[in-house]
Nucleic acid binder design. Structure first.
Ligand SMILES: Nc1ccn([C@H]2C[C@H](O)[C@@H](COP(=O)(O)OP(=O)(O)OP(=O)(O)O)O2)c(=O)n1
Ligand SMILES: [Mg+2]
Ligand SMILES: [Mg+2]
Length: 607
DNA sequence: ACTGCTCGCGCG
DNA sequence: AAAGCGCGCGAGCAGT
């Protein structure tokens, strides 16, 4: 049955397959070492090769590679990994003149190659990333399955019914046919997407994404160590607090039925709003800003907010996290979306590791293995620096050249005093970025009151806000220079977002997106220079922050390496503004200090 | 039981 | 809630 695929294509019934495709390639099934050597010899001369892997499941740590499909122009090789060890493919992927490897969602295939001990091809083109880059800002950016992309750019329909079939048994003709087609279509897609990228002037962005891609696969494959026991303890404490607060809310509101049970579900915004309206507050929302505005007249408000905080911890940061611990590795392998936002930022799901509570009790549950540490590096004031460059604000540029800290300055401006705590500085971020991206005076005033306790009249708030814009007059000009109507924006790296509608989006997108460009350039550098720190692996990316895990002995080296990659990655986009990276060596993600013994200095050693 | 929506909120 | 932006997740709720 398998032999049929080596020559004439056949379907499951053994009948010849008819196809409209006149250029159907030669399909070859490789089931022994000699055939693999021969296949690699032939493929090695191809400049571009489509790669697709069929696996027994979606988990590179648990499931197995079954079939590796390699498509050159006019020739598809299917390597049956149950019959032949694919190590020989290292010769295809590596060395001078190695081919460009084209794959769809290559992060998936790369993780299986990594698990199999195969090298990561040095030159990659991911058709999914390309489609996301081209569609940034449109709903199509979220519909990027191979079938979607093939339909969009080739007008071809792809049958995915075999994708989820059983790949652990005897391979059927239908499966082999499907596998060959999937790989072959990648080459045509590559041609079409490369042309689209060229005409949209997005080639540089695609290059950047494809260079960052191995680091993202590396990070996902690595996962991160997690102390589930301590995490669950925090959940139980939050649960007790939540239930206590619910009882107190019910008692305070007098919302008990005959049995003393609550008639209100405090987790329902609708019911909370109804309670508040009955108590004389004309609210249409119950978010924190609304609740704060009635806090003076409503004793339930602090209880509701505390209840919400506890509920958040029980729900979003609760016991379900134990399900994310991988049975084999004992670590959490979140799913990283390399292009997760319309701006170009990454995103993270199942679970989202980019919005862990800042509370060290939670963050310290993420820990390196024994004898290892985390090295965490975060860009300083990054979007202010980028905005200074984009808006060409002389005052802001010069402030950065002098090494000033604008978050601290803004905290001082609003507080009216010199002394600023780390919390004050953290709060100033929302003010700086709020004003930078178009926040109005009303919201500015309420924020200042809530976080700094400074009560301002609307006129006083307006004056402070004007003072901020007087300090950075280039930012005000930049605001006024924004065009009306729908626009497309570009980052300093050339990344494009289309359909940008509102004034505030037009301000934010190129700045946030440039930050993503720089961070991805840093990831690309980390991958290509990883030999500088052999024990180091990436474990987290949090927008302008990268966390590595490495041996204690290599920590200092890793810190230098990481900060250099990050500086270089970002600095290429900033001509006038310096880039600063804050790097720390820590025993866990909560920031527990690491007691690091520096690497022995061999140069000056006595022997 | 599942899907799709809104609301609210965690993070950068 | 207000001209800050970008995400993902859980709960409630309505519809099936
Ligand atoms: N409320 C916020 C917080 C952050 N950001 C964006 C802009 C920041 O530059 C970027 C990174 O967040 P950080 O917390 O790292 O803030 P900074 O880099 O500005 O400051 P720091 O020097 O503390 O790193 O995320 C934002 O838009 N709005
Ligand atoms: Mg930062
Ligand atoms: Mg940060």
């Amino acid at each position: 049955m398998l032999g049929a695929l080596c020559g004439e294509p056949a379907d499951n019934t053994g009948n010849p397959v008819t196809s409209a495709d006149q250029t159907r390639p030669d399909v070859r099934l490789v089931t022994d070492a000699a055939a693999l050597v021969e296949a690699v010899r032939e493929l090695r001369s191809a400049p571009v090769i489509g790669l697709d892997c069929e696996t027994t499941g979606l988990d590179p740590h648990g499931d197995r590679l079954r079939l590796i499909q390699l498509a050159a122009r006019g020739c598809v090789c299917l390597v049956d990994c149950f019959r032949v060890r694919p190590c020989e493919l290292a010769r295809l992927f590596q060395g001078p003149g190695a081919p460009l490897i084209v794959a769809h969602n290559a992060k998936f295939d790369l993780q299986f190659l990594m698990a199999a001990g195969l090298p990561v091809p040095p030159r990659l083109f991911d058709t999914m990333l390309a489609a996301q880059i081209l569609a940034a800002g449109t709903p199509e950016a979220r519909q990027v399955s191979l079938a979607d992309v093939a339909a969009r750019y080739l007008g071809e329909t792809v049958d995915k019914s075999e994708q989820t079939s059983d790949w652990s048994g005897e391979l059927t003709a239908g499966q082999l046919e499907y596998a060959a087609h999937d790989a072959a279509i990648l080459l045509r897609l590559y041609d079409a997407l490369r042309e689209e990228l060229r005409t949209a002037r997005l080639g540089n962005t695609a290059g950047l994404e494809n260079r960052a891609l191995p680091a993202v696969a590396w990070m996902e494959h690595t996962g991160i160590g997690f102390d589930a026991e301590r995490w669950l303890e925090l959940g139980l404490a939050a649960e007790r607090r939540r239930d206590e607060l619910a009882r107190e809310l019910t008692a305070t509101a007098g919302a008990e039925d005959l049995f003393g049970n609550s008639t209100v579900n405090w987790a329902s915004p609708e019911q909370v709003a109804e309670v508040l309206r009955r108590r004389g507050h004309e609210v249409t929302s119950t978010d924190e800003a609304t609740l704060r505005s009635i806090q003076d007249r409503e004793p339930l408000v602090p209880l509701i907010l505390a209840y919400r905080e506890a509920s958040k911890r029980v729900g979003t940061y609760g016991e379900r996290w134990a399900e994310h611990v991988h049975a084999r590795t004992g670590r959490i392998h979140a799913s990283w979306r390399q292009i997760g936002a319309a701006s170009g930022r990454m995103a993270c799901t199942r679970p989202n590791l980019q919005n862990l509570p800042r509370d060290p009790a939670y963050r310290s549950c993420f820990r390196p293995g024994a004898g290892r540490v985390f090295v965490k590096a975060d860009y300083s004031q990054i979007e202010l620096r980028i905005a200074a460059e984009i808006a060409k604000d002389r005052r802001m540029i010069e402030a950065f050249q002098r090494g000033e800290d604008l978050h601290t300055l803004t905290a001082r401006l609003v507080l009216g005093r010199e002394a600023v705590t780390p919390e004050d500085r953290q709060a100033a971020k929302a003010l700086n970025f709020g004003l930078l991206y178009g926040m109005g005076v009303q919201r500015f005033r309420d924020y200042a009151e809530l976080h700094y306790g400074v009560q301002l009249s609307l006129e006083e708030a307006a004056e402070l806000r004007r003072a901020w814009f007087r300090t950075y007059p280039g930012v005000r000009r930049w605001h006024r220079a924004q065009p009306d109507g729908e626009a497309e924006t570009r980052t300093l790296g050339g990344r494009k977002r289309i359909g940008v509608k509102s004034f505030t989006e037009k301000l934010n997108t190129p700045v946030q997106g440039t930050g993503a460009d720089g961070l991805k350039a840093a990831l690309a550098l980390l991958w290509t220079t990883r030999d500088r720190c052999p024990s180091a692996v990436p474990v987290l990316v949090v927008h302008d922050e990268i966390v590595l895990e490495c041996d204690v002995a290599e920590a200092e080296q890793a810190a230098v390496w990481l900060s250099e990659c990050m500086r270089q990655g970002m600095a290429q986009f900033l001509r006038r503004v310096p880039v600063d990276v804050e790097t720390k060596i820590i025993a866990d993600y909560g920031g527990t200090p690491a007691t690091v013994e520096p690497e022995p200095d061999l140069e000056s050693a006595p022997f």
